[in-house]
Design a protein around this nucleic acid. Structure first.
Lengths: 148, 148
DNA sequence: TTTACTGGATTATGATATAACATTGATATA
DNA sequence: TATATCAATGTTATATCATAATCCAGTAAA
């Protein structure tokens, strides 16, 4: 679990609270869901949560999934320029593709190559892939309902 | 201009209005910006705009930029599974990377390869790259301010 | 003419996010 | 010690983005 490597001493109190909340969750959390959790710690205002999330993002500890307006802990050791997520339209599962995967660096390289060719200085990128995860694919072929 | 190839006859009245509004704009538009434009055509409610945008997205004519909550016309002829955008943090410029670029298909192939390996059935994907565009890079190196 | 369907209008509200300003507490330093 | 400073936090209000729910109008098929 990559989260064990994070230096928690650099986090502010609120950042730590948000970090813990995200760590407990097995799926991405909306800001207001985080707020609900933190209410038991005396946090009352959305601002508090958004500020902490922003700090965690800057530290590379949290990623925002723009397509879902939700936040997840980064599951990898080193900072990476390209974050890639699989999002299941069926069950909502979100999985960050590990940059350590054998082919993943090739994807990142290809992207960086294409982008450089355009004269663009990329700072970070997010790839959000929507589809049906392995689990739900099985279910779907059984009874052909639901989905989108 | 790829927009000339679109079969406008399949669009509803409101979809056509939204399409025209986006076509006039040289940058992505927020839904409420579109609404402002359409007010002169009697459109009053956000719902109308969002419905039309949804229709256009389904037809592959419009993409949503989740990171900006904004919408752009697709600038390409054929539907494509992976949409890639450069977003300048400095000036707000947004450019869709053409899937016809020499290396672009390789990126898409690499992505599809990695994803297939995970058993995920990808339906569509969006790659949003944030950074500094060529124009702004020049400005920046001159006086080293701003950004972020 | 009924029925069913698609698109559209309207009203209200929900969900997401930030602006602006006040307060606190720690640290530095005059 | 007094006080200046700064980062973090708290608080209030409001802006922005998006959808639910319901009704209506046109039209094409039975």
């Amino acid at each position: 679990m990559a989260h064990d490597n994070i230096d928690l001493s650099t986090l502010t109190r609120n950042e730590l609270l948000v970090f813990e909340a995200l760590k407990e969750s097995d799926s991405p959390m909306k800001a207001y869901d985080v707020l609900d959790v933190l209410k038991s710690h005396g946090v009352r205002a959305p601002m508090t949560v958004y500020r902490a999330l922003e700090g965690l993002e800057e530290k590379g500890i949290v990623h925002k999934l723009d397509a879902l307006n939700a936040f997840v802990l980064c599951s990898h050791d080193r900072p990476h320029q390209v974050q890639s997520f699989l999002v299941c339209s069926e069950c909502g599962m979100v999985q960050e593709i590990s940059p350590e995967l054998r082919e993943a660096p090739q994807v990142e390289d290809k992207i960086l190559g294409v982008v450089r060719a355009t004269g663009f200085q990329m700072r970070e990128a997010r790839l959000e892939m929507k589809g049906i995860c392995q689990k739900c694919t099985g279910k779907q072929s059984a009874h052909n309902t639901a989905a989108e």
